[in-house]
Amino acid sequence: MYMLYSLRLAVQSVWREKWINLLSILTIAAGLFMITLTFFSVYNIDLATKKLPEKFSMTLYLNDRVSEQDRGNIIAVLKKNSMVEHVKFISKDRAMEELRGVLKNADYVLEGIDENPLPASIELRLKHESVSISGVKKLAADIGKIKGIDEVEYGEQFLNSMHSIRTGAQTISMLMVVLMSTGIIFVCYSTVKIMFYRRKEEIETFKLLGATKGFIRAPFVIEGGMLGAGGGVVGMFGAIAFYYAFFYKLVLTMPILKVIVFPSEIFIALPFTGLLLGICGAVVALGRIRFS
């Protein structure tokens, strides 16, 4: 029942100390906007690195002495592997043809070569979900043991760099989010703490009249939530402004930026994130309330 009254007290307090609260709201908004930008960057890096494995393939070079039957057996074994999506055999002749196609006018370098030096190979396209560093390494090692396969080649370095970029971006973003969230909690903590000390006499009177801890805490928790949510709303308008500036102004002049995606769901998440962080800050600020 006292929640309505607590809400009234919180609104009165926010209004009474409007300047300090406005400053807190703007600081929170800046923090949340930074979190949005971090999320936006990581989201796009993640999306880009997810798309790359679609083009990922593995090439197995066959021994020249492998018979047609053994080759058939190798292909059958590979097709049965759960990580493999597609198997394509490339004969020695086909390999030479492809090389000539690649060299085009520079195919004179092949003149004088009597015997085709290129080995026959099998190209494997892996299932999208199988393209992980450990998975691909294990598959390459297993395939390398198959009799008749001389060499297994795959973009190990490419996979490692992709993994590093992704992990690096995720770590930096995680650090940024933790840092900014802690900052926002601290802003709410400080503001609520100041309000609490300013109303210390009043709170002492409340306690002596028989107010419970819940009654004393509620207006401050609501106030913290209001500051956080307020910061979230301002941050949301900032993000919307950024969205329109980026996609309707910058993309028009630089069409290459069209590949960048902005998840608009984040707009609605900002006030709620602010609310949650504000409440956290207020709860930490209030600490333990003692009656005697």
């Binding site: 006499e201 009043e202 002492e204 009177t205 306690k207 002596l208 009249l209 028989g210 107010a211 419970t212 801890k213 003692r290 009656f291 005697s292």
Partner: peptide, 22 residues
């Protein structure tokens, strides 16, 4: 118990020497 103190205080009306009016 600490949590029962408010409920005991509600049974006791106090006229404070320094009034404690807000």
């Amino acid at each position: 118990k600490e949590s029962s103190i408010p409920f005991l205080r509600r049974n006791i009306g106090v006229v404070f020497q320094d009034f404690r009016l807000l």
